[in-house]
Nucleic acid binder design. Structure first.
Lengths: 129, 129
DNA sequence: AATTATAATGCAATAATTTGCAGTTGCAAT
DNA sequence: ATTGCAACTGCAAATTATTGCATTATAATT
């Protein structure tokens, strides 16, 4: 396998699929076309892409991390610990925080997919503390 | 083993140790006193404690997640992807964001230890994009 | 105290992820 | 072309984390 065309293939795979894919799912889809790609190659390519800010990695509290191509508009998620509901929130507030951090700490945030765990309104009503 | 005294033992272990411990390290320390505790019990106890907001779980980009007792003052971290430097930041800005989210989405954030990846100032100078 | 329900545990199997190391590949400079 | 170096890959082993199921413990109820 030609070195690092894997990056491109993974990116294309993620772009076709809008939803969050696990490393194993990505591995599976790539295998369909290129049987001769190893698992750790996929993990390492994903790591490179995440590092470069081209894909996001998120632990949504499922067994496995999920990956996604970073497109124009970012989004983030609130995950309810009780009912597992996933709420998508837009980037404005988060970007503002990141800008603050960048100014205060001179630190360029690359994290591009934030997952915040907690309790949704329905679950709070259903079972108040 | 008396059910769920494990919770207390883990909490005590984490409180004694200020630093971030991995599940394996916690497992190791508990074994010293209580050989008859299983790995999955430790993982499950940590999960419970995290869910209850008593300990924080963070993937700092090392191989394993790290756990910490949640004390009075929260803190969060910026982790440089290049040099692995860990910058500790205080809670104020983050809490403000969480409050916003709580107001806008009626969602109570439990996440209590945020890790943001990016590039520290030194590395940005050393290797500008 | 006996009875039920609910939650916690151990164990073993499985899944997900990481790592070490040797071998390839791509690329730039001879 | 050849050399040298850094990045990428495959493979296998090791680590880290999760899960299913039978058993045991705790708690609540009668």
């Amino acid at each position: 396998m030609r070195a690092s065309s894997v990056n491109q293939i993974i990116l294309k795979t993620l772009e076709q699929d809008q939803s969050h894919l696990t490393a194993q799912q990505i591995y599976g889809r790539i295998r369909d076309n290129l049987p001769a790609v190893n698992q750790s190659t996929v993990y390492r390519a994903l790591e490179r892409l995440a590092h470069a800010g081209q894909v996001s990695v998120s632990d949504m509290g499922l067994g496995a991390a999920v990956y996604e191509a970073v497109g124009g508009e970012q989004h983030h998620h609130l995950v309810c610990q009780e009912c597992n509901q996933v709420i998508t929130i837009d980037d404005a507030a988060i970007q503002a925080l990141f800008n603050d951090i960048e100014r205060q700490h001179d630190f360029q945030v690359v994290t591009n997919h934030l997952i915040l765990f907690g309790r949704c309104s329905a679950c709070r009503e259903r079972m108040p503390e």
